[in-house]
Design a protein around this nucleic acid. Sequence first.
DNA 1: GACCAGGCACATC
DNA 2: GATGTGCATGGT
Length: 197
Amino acid sequence: MGPQYWWPGESRFEVIVGAVLTQNTSWKNVEKAIANLKKSNLMNIKRLTNENGKNIATLIRPSGFYNIKTRRLKNLLNYLKTRFGSDLRKASCISTGVLRKELLAVNGIGKETADSILLYAFNRPVFVVDSYTKRVLARHKMLRGDEEYDEISKIFYESLPEDAGLFNEYHALIVRLCKEFCYAVEPLCGKCLLKKL
DNA sequence: GACCAGGCACATC
DNA sequence: GATGTGCATGGT
């Protein structure tokens, strides 16, 4: 199906911001929040780090959970500032394992958000397990349903070569599958049945 | 008006 | 360790 060009974002920093904003939120809403930040010239690590929380919260409002997401962004920005002096290029000399551990230590950054940042912002060979991933595996009876995050990612690590580019495309295709075809809970919902006919 | 969307932390048992 | 809950908007 050709390259999917993921993650949708113009810069590494934009990917990082989007990873937090999209927590339990549709990407459509996140796009509005990102557009607001860009309009205010705040899609920049140093400027956003120095911006007051109240204004950030107002701008990211469309993405929902705006107060808690503002706090999470602040926590993450604070880590990036103390660790890299807000220069993301400095992350290149840190091992993926260490980077992941540090990201997970930031309050508000869980496994999926950390892995999204690692893969899509830092190009590390990490497989992202999100609700799309789980849905596809579940529909193909590859999950019982009570597996933990690391247990699910293990399926991919044990089946695929460790390759960031491959993991990127693979996950993007899983998402495309979910969006273009019916991967809801039921085997085939009425709407998709009609579409098929 | 109900339900859902690319989570996470925290309280409680 | 497992389960429940708050966080909030916008689209269908």
